[in-house]
Design a protein around this nucleic acid. Structure first.
Lengths: 334, 334
DNA sequence: AGTCAAAATGTAACCGTTTTCATTACACTG
DNA sequence: CAGTGTAATGAAAACGGTTACATTTTGACT
């Protein structure tokens, strides 16, 4: 192992000078700098990152907690996170939690043991174990897309309420009256916001929503398939289905077609997130675009501010959405 | 910051005893163990992971280099990597390279500076910079799905040649004679293998392949759209198109439908990878299933063997594929 | 009670850096 | 030429652990 000692001997200077040459070259004479750099190259020297970090007390890493890796929407966020982090000299420790608490605990513990400087949570749970509760108080954490339940950490999310209202208006504009909803996890804030958004408009329009028409409990394609099956088995099936993400919508569309329904002539379907493939479905999916990449980037910015103990301007950011009216929605069948 | 010193004082023992209590509890009396653990809890102590790592010289981290995060196929591999690594006490540093050499260099450098113990490359390039060439010789590295060009690192991949032959036989069985191919990056081994697989069967069957029918240079949906457009603009368009991944196939299917073609009646399309959505396309995509998750897991196993300097049984693993005959392929139009 | 190996604990060196503080070299002033 | 201020360098103390080695304690066996 070639270390700073060896380089210093090779260059005939002290280790301090080698360190200075590498970290703050302006503290060193032109000629010693050259001498040292030559030795560095000759020895093939790379400073040991671990040693540097233990000394400075900063790991320049952040942990990203994601409930799963199959949802392409998450990947887009992570892409934003990764790039912003990279630009700032930080690297990303990926924590696929599978929604399991003990895994979250484990990964969250990394920042308590100085393996990482901060944490970005893509799920809505508080990732620390109860025993770490107090320690966790002061550590930098941000959530994206979701809010950490019952805690006041900064978050970056979409205006889910307004977006759902927009979707609902869009469908009502097409004359729909009977709606179905296929939802994901019921426990999160975004679930409540989206549901509230839809219901608020329905109420304003004097349409009663039958809670039997709310099905689904996960954001998977299968949920869409199964949810659609349930909804369509109804004696008075909906003419439009809100799916709480695009994957669900893909599953629902698949199942609806299997029932011989034409989309959108017989049934309108909406998604949420605007994942890549949604524009290439048959028909292309009407959905809400979330600026996922940008959200990831923004999360890093906020997190780094917390890490640097800079004051935050805003502790909650609600980003604008875009309603993409594509061909999976149309006039209600009369 | 609560460190081992403080805990040792609190417990009235030496730092060595604290360290032993935590790392090798069997070296310590039942009663001191309790005493120490009480102090640990009281102080809310967590060993500084950086300090431990610098002392032991092992970071228990691996870098995963991935050309992009949008391809769901990669995510499945990474999922396998992450889980296997987690089980072995390793964590994953995610390196999204965007296919850029300087980014690869930067991430690869992490293992030279002890930030990580090994490297998994999902792309086919040698990730180290020229100046790191010698240093890189001894570092543990494995590639998945691809082979690192011109180097003899261990790799885990599919039998792309055989899989392509199977696809080709499948289509020929349906009576197809005029084929198109929409490919991804041309420079990789998997490209060559897949192409060779197809051509070998065609040759055996006495079918000549017109190289003008080979289009595309990236694994994106758009490539599928554009590639299909080119192929279908031909005076004698193909009756079947091989797409070198599912994303391309999704794009191609979209474009073909836009041309008013029915799939598979007017045109057969095959994918590769079996990404999640491919089963829910309209029609469901005939494709080759790659055991992506398992490949990721296996890559970690091999990498850890290298890290532990254990001898490798095999330096190259060719995994079995599964041909999924779904509804995007059918009898050739006569 | 005395012996001695084994077990438990302590002391201190070490991992590879950074950084404070002290020292030296050097140019400039009077 | 002594005196002074500044710039460049070095010596050594950290950072927070682990661990080789030394020392003490324990307890089984004469």
């Amino acid at each position: 192992m070639t270390n700073i000692k060896k380089v210093s001997e090779l260059a005939g200077v002290s280790t301090a000078t080698v360190s200075r040459t590498l970290k703050s070259p302006d503290l060193v004479t032109e000629q010693t700098r050259e001498k040292v750099m030559k030795a560095v190259r000759a020895a093939g020297y790379r400073p040991n990152w671990l040693a540097t970090s233990v000394k400075t007390g900063k790991s320049n890493s952040i942990v990203v907690l994601v409930p799963n890796l199959v949802n392409p929407f998450f990947m887009r966020i992570i892409e934003g996170i990764e790039q912003a982090a990279q630009e700032q000299g930080y690297s990303v420790l990926l924590g696929d939690t599978q929604g399991k608490a003990e895994r979250e605990n484990e990964y969250a513990g990394m920042v308590l043991s100085n393996r990482a400087d901060g944490l970005i949570q893509l799920d809505h749970s508080f990732p620390f174990s109860e025993s770490d509760e107090e320690l966790a108080q002061s550590i930098p954490m941000v959530s994206v897309c979701e809010r950490i339940a019952g805690r006041k950490y900064p978050f970056i999310e979409l205006d889910n309420y307004a977006a759902s209202r927009a979707l609902t208006h869009h469908l009502i504009g097409y004359g729909h009256q009977r709606f179905g909803i296929i939802a994901g996890q019921r426990s999160s804030q975004i679930h409540r916001d989206r549901l509230a958004g839809i219901k608020s408009v329905l109420e304003e329009e004097g349409i009663v929503f039958d809670d039997a028409m709310l099905v689904g409990e996960s954001y998977a394609i299968d949920t869409g398939v199964e949810g659609a099956r349930q909804l369509l088995a109804n004696s008075k099936p909906p003419t439009a289905i809100f799916c709480f993400n695009d994957d669900i919508a893909i599953g629902a569309m698949f199942e609806a077609k299997r029932h011989g329904l034409r989309i959108p002539q017989d049934l309108s379907i909406t998604g949420f997130d605007n994942v890549r493939v949604s524009a290439y479905m048959d028909p292309p999916l009407t959905t809400v675009d979330q600026p996922a990449y940008e959200m990831g980037r923004r999360a890093v910015e906020v997190l780094l501010q917390m890490i640097r103990r800079e004051p935050l301007q805003r502790t909650r950011e609600i980003l604008p959405f875009t309603l993409l009216e594509r061909q999976s929605t149309g006039p209600a069948k009369t």
